[in-house]
Structures are given as C-alpha cells and as structure tokens.
Write a protein that binds this DNA or RNA. Structure first.
Lengths: 122, 122
DNA sequence: CGGTATCCTAATTGATACTG
DNA sequence: CAGTATCAATTAGGATACCG
C-alpha cells in the first residue's frame, strides 16, 4: 500500500478520482464488472434496474474514453457487445472494495449509534 | 482489513457510500479535515477556492447530520466556528487515502500509458 | 440486441445581497 | 466571521421514439 503519495495533503488526487468515476452510475458499473467479469450490454441493463438505455450507453462510453473499460463488438446478428474492465480499470479493485466496506460500516453506524435520534419524518 | 464483506457482490455498500459522501465537495472537505485536523469556516473556504459560502454551509450541514463531522461554535465576537472529523468520520481515512492514491495513478495513466495504447479503433 | 437522437425534469452549483 | 436567503445558470439524470 501507499505506493504513491507524492502530495498527500493535496486534493489533486481526490479531484482526479471524482472526475473519472464520480457519476451516479459509474462506480456501480465498475463494481459489477470487477466482481462478475465480462458483461453484455443487456446484462448490465438488467442489473442496474433503474438505468435507461441512453444513460447506460453514455456512462459506458465515458468509461471507455477514460481507459477504464474495454468494449468488444461481435459483428453478428443479433448484435453482441461485451464490456470488461481494462488492465488499468482493474487497479480500482482496492478503492471500490474499500468504498463497499465503508458503506456497510456506515450502515451499521446509522442503525446502531443513532438509536436516540428519532425516526426520519419527511 | 476486510473486516466486513457481508455481501461483496452487492452494490448496497457502494450505494450507501455514494449517498453519504457522493457530492462534489464532500470528499474534498473530508480529505482536508482528515489531513489537517480542525478547521475554521473561513479556512475551509479559502482552501476550496471555488466554493461559495452557501455551498460550503450546505455541505457542512449535511456532513454533520450524517455524523461524519462535528461542529463546534464559540459564542464570542467575532463569531468562531470550527469543524473536525467525528470518530466515525475518521474511519474514512482508508477510503479517502485510497481515492487519493488511485487518482494519482490515474493521472500517470493519462499522461504516460496512452502513447502506446492506440488500439481504440472505433 | 444494442444502440442513437431528442426532449424534459430535477438536482447541483454559483453569484449576489442581507443578517446576527 | 459565519452564516441565511434568493434566484439564475448549468448539468446530471431520465423517458420516449426511432435506427442498423
């Protein structure tokens, strides 16, 4: 760990990270590809139940342009397109894993530590 | 490490994480408080050079409500308000550190690896 | 099946002015 | 100094229809 900490106090690294995978769907797409490997367009669409075709296409294109995923097109009928993490995309494994782990820890915090903080009336 | 991985394949953890610190400024605010400790309102405002008063107040309030930071008000003239990470907020150290590290790695990738990676024939 | 194009709404963001 | 309130601008996100 700590392979590269040239400016630990600078927000530059965090800013770059947010620009690359900061959207609403990108972390989820990357997380699925990381855990389940290569996926077809339709498979991703089914798993991200609330996403629309247009949004999924858009997010996948941006991830591809950032070099995080690879798009493989099979020239056949019916069409078949597969997506998978690139070599560089796989370096996200640690970050995404930590994000997931902390998310669960935060859920515990919200459920356990806040017993005296009344229901969320909205 | 890997203290809690109850559903590694589920996106639940990532979703929770995004809801808690998913904004544009929150990771930066938390990162600064993590690395530099307690900060006054004006200090944060100076470091986040592009943020407006309203935005900073809004983000700090949400972070406070999520139990990630602590707001300490000094009843004096002129007013003085300090912010610092809560106990729970400090558990973000690993995640934020990984985010920063990966961001720098991504910068290297964008600047260096792309000279020979021309197979993106679209 | 896997897109693309268009339009639309809602959430973020930012500038400005005012207050205790 | 540290807010609060308001409004305008931008952007992200989403529904629908059509195409190769």
């Amino acid at each position: 760990m700590q392979a590269d900490m040239r400016e630990p106090d600078s927000t530059q690294g965090v800013i770059t990270m947010l620009q690359a995978i900061g959207g609403k769907w990108k972390p989820l797409i990357l997380f699925i590809l990381l855990n389940e490997g290569t996926k077809r367009f339709g498979q991703l669409r089914r798993q991200l139940t609330n996403i629309t075709q247009g949004m999924l296409t858009n997010q996948l294109r941006e991830l591809e342009q950032d070099g995080l995923i690879v798009r493989r097109v099979y020239q056949e009928i019916p069409p078949k397109v597969e997506y998978e993490l690139s070599e560089h995309g796989r370096t996200l494994k640690t970050v995404l894993g930590e994000m997931c782990t902390w998310g669960y820890r935060h859920l515990d915090f919200l459920n356990g530590e806040k017993v005296s903080a009344g229901p969320s009336e909205r």
